[in-house]
């Protein structure tokens, strides 16, 4: 089963089996946004508490495949306590890692030598840490949407938190 180990790294399976920050937060004060992957039926709910500048707490609810669940779980670890700006940079770095193949026509493998912060569009100093384990997903293009579902949903939750500061119902 060549290739599968690239996709299903042990740390991914660990987050899938034991998801971190799973559950719900009280709304309000938390912001809650639901995300869907209409192709495969994955549904994720992201709850964030913010203090106006950073995410003070986060929970994930819903269901999905190992890639979407592990990505969401790792994401919560990576963003808790971080400022909106830091999260935005991290998101950009993560998505850049996910779409590396689009800039690499005919290429193969990874362009970088170091496995941290080498994504082309990543802002300086952004470390993806455990999230690097998801790099193998780019070899399975249909799964990229699984990996980015939680991140897109998070971005929406933070947008809502920034724009109204108050509670918002779940959307879309």
């Amino acid at each position: 089963m060549s290739g599968l180990e690239d996709l299903y790294r042990e740390i991914i399976l660990d987050h899938y089996r034991t998801p971190r920050n799973r559950g719900q937060l009280e709304v309000p004060p938390a912001h809650k946004v639901e995300g869907f992957n209409p192709l495969c039926g994955d549904e994720i709910t992201v709850y964030v508490d913010t203090d106006g500048e950073k995410v003070t707490d986060v929970r994930i609810d819903g269901q999905g495949c190992s890639i979407s669940q592990a990505s969401a779980s790792m994401m919560t670890n990576a963003i808790k306590g971080r400022t909106f700006t830091e999260i935005s940079e991290l998101t950009r770095a993560f998505k850049s890692m996910m779409s590396i193949h689009e800039n690499e026509i005919g290429g193969e493998g990874e362009p970088g030598t170091d496995s941290t912060g080498d994504a082309p569009a990543a802002p300086d100093g952004v470390r993806l840490g455990d999230l690097e384990a998801l790099r193998g997903v780019v070899k399975f293009p249909v799964r990229i949407k699984c990996a980015t579902l939680a991140w897109n949903t998070l971005a929406q939750a933070i947008d809502e938190a920034r724009s109204d500061g108050g509670a918002s119902p779940g959307s879309s």
């Binding site: 060549s2 996709l7 495969c40 039926g41 699984c146």
Partner: peptide, 28 residues
């Protein structure tokens, strides 16, 4: 094993199945 992961492993065997809600979410 989530159906999406299952289908991925089956693809390694060249076995083509379909994961998802099959456009029948009320049934799901």
């Amino acid at each position: 094993v989530h159906p999406h992961d299952l289908s991925q492993v089956l693809d390694q065997h060249n076995v083509c199945v379909r994961p998802g809600h099959h456009c029948a979410k009320p049934l799901m």
